[in-house]
Design a protein around this nucleic acid. Structure first.
Length: 429
RNA sequence: GGAGAGGUGGCCGAGUGGUCGAAGGCGCUCGCCUGCUAAGCGAGAGUGUCGCUUAAUAGGCGACACCACGGGUUCGAAUCCCGUCCUCUCCGCCA
């Protein structure tokens, strides 16, 4: 969410940001109009209240000479009250519609983000192909997994419908090992603090993180209790310090957390239906930072490297893509995607999306800090990135670590976690 | 889920209708003092919004709102009433 005063001061800039995100900039004009209505109403109501307070004060101090005079004061106050009560609902309506508009305006676009229409205009800024590649043509993961009996697609669908699957035996353990490896790696090598979070949150958390009100369609929810399954750990992480003022010396804060993620994927209906690339439920280890505003840019570069280090340790090839303005997520001012090479389906798979959100979420969730005990509170900057998303790393391992005989080798760094060094044919039932 | 108690400023804690944005203590900030991080003395500190002033989203002045949240009673509510949420204790249930 943006500071309405910043928009008022520079509407052209905000219109431009909307344009390069392929959104309608005319909303800014409506916003400005509503805002001036709002201010006018506030001024009016405040004046009336002021008059009313003065009367109460007079009565309290017994500044009247007769009972009749007192009654007159009471009568005046009642009149003022009626005027106020007439205006108040109008104001709250105006405020509500202003908030609705503000909540639907995406973040600004960082200066160094390339302007572009869609993912075709994204820039590949770095490629590292030191990773393992089979010297034969490996099967895509859904085929090899079926051959080895380590993924049961049919029965997953039987339980929960399309885009659900069951991982079995050593593959299930491989995934579990990866989660532990990721958490250990980031806590030990990169100084992130590990958190175990709720997987269900209140609606205001999703508003704080930017999923609501715009992306309600993509979320699983229990409206009766206002409880929502998290689509990413970013949501609970963003809200840990909501409505708090942090002392500056605790910043930056680095957190890492594993959560499952639940997404309806309505927007992506029909895409990536084969295999485990896009499910309604998947696991992810998320990296999150709270930083001083002046450091967030640098912290983003570091965050990306932290995520890349995992791929290096797993000996997987990857590349870094800088998203163009048209492909940026709603809350992000700048995003790098990290894509891993999958030799079976021959695709670069997005395993991480690292974003500098600036103060966008901090405003929505009201997360601030104080530079010194006597300085004014300021909004923190927040950053998030996967470190990493599990299924796609699993895909990369199944495809890149595939052997000619159809078995899968386990990356060396994972072997202490799995307790085995290869996956072969699994039990059928 | 049932019964009871309670939710006040960074923290503790007073306050049951009027000058209370809130005593007191701790902590914090800035001075002073003491020849060395302590003690003492003095002063100052909440958040947000609107308006005026200003080059200023710096500072100043004024107003309004905020004592869990939402409503109500009243000229006037932290204080009274209703609803919701949360916390604690006991019981029940359960991994």
């Amino acid at each position: 969410m943006h500071d309405i005063n910043l928009i008022t001061q520079n509407p052209q800039k905000f219109k431009y940001y909307l344009e390069i995100r392929n959104e309608d900039p005319s909303i800014i004009d409506r916003l400005l109009e509503i805002n001036s209505q709002r201010k006018e109403l506030i001024t009016k109501i405040n004046n009336l209240r002021n008059q009313k307070n003065n009367i109460s004060d007079k009565i309290a101090r017994k500044q009247y000479s007769s009972e009749e005079e007192r009654q007159l004061l009471v009568k005046d106050s009642n009149l003022l009250d009626r005027e106020i009560k007439d205006l108040e609902p109008i104001l709250s309506e105006v405020e509500q519609s202003m908030k609705n508009i503000l909540l639907n305006i995406p973040n600004i676009v960082a200066e160094d983000v390339p302007v572009g229409k869609d993912s075709n205009d994204n820039q590949i800024i770095y490629t590292e192909e030191e990773g393992l590649t089979p010297n034969f043509d490996p099967l895509p993961h859904w085929e090899i997994a079926e051959k080895l009996n380590i993924i049961d697609f049919e029965r997953g669908v039987k339980l929960s419908g399309s885009r659900f699957y069951i991982m079995k035996g050593k593959l299930a353990k491989l995934q579990r090992a990866l989660i532990n490896f990721f958490l250990d790696f980031h806590t030990q090598k990169h100084n992130y603090k590990e958190l175990y979070l709720p997987f269900i949150v209140k609606g205001y958390c999703l508003e704080g993180a930017g999923q609501l009100p715009k992306f309600e369609d993509n979320l699983y929810k229990d409206l009766e209790d206002d409880m929502w399954l998290v689509p990413t750990a970013e949501v609970p992480l963003t809200n840990i310090y909501r409505d708090e003022i942090l002392p500056a010396d605790v910043l930056p804060l680095y957190y890492v957390a594993y959560t499952p993620c639940f997404r309806k994927e309505k927007i992506a209906a029909g895409r990536d239906v084969r295999g485990i690339k896009r499910g309604h439920q998947f696991d992810k280890v998320e990296l999150y930072k709270f930083t001083l505003p002046e450091n967030s840019d640098y912290e983003l570069e570091k965050l990306v490297q932290d995520a890349c280090d995992i791929l290096r340790a797993l000996k997987l090839s990857f590349r870094i893509v800088k998203l163009c303005s048209g492909d940026l997520g709603f809350s992000s001012a700048k995003t790098y995607d990290i894509e891993v090479w999958a030799a079976g389906c021959k695709e670069w798979l997005e395993v991480s999306s690292c974003s500098n959100v600036l103060d966008f979420q901090a405003r929505r969730a009201n997360i601030r800090f104080r530079r010194t005990p006597q300085s004014k509170p300021e909004y923190v900057h927040t950053l998030n990135g996967s470190g990493l998303a599990l299924p796609r790393v699993v895909i990369a391992i199944l495809e890149n670590y595939q052997q000619k005989d159809g078995t899968i080798r386990i990356p060396e760094v994972l072997q202490p976690y799995t307790g085995f060094d290869q996956i072969e044919i699994n039990w059928k039932y």
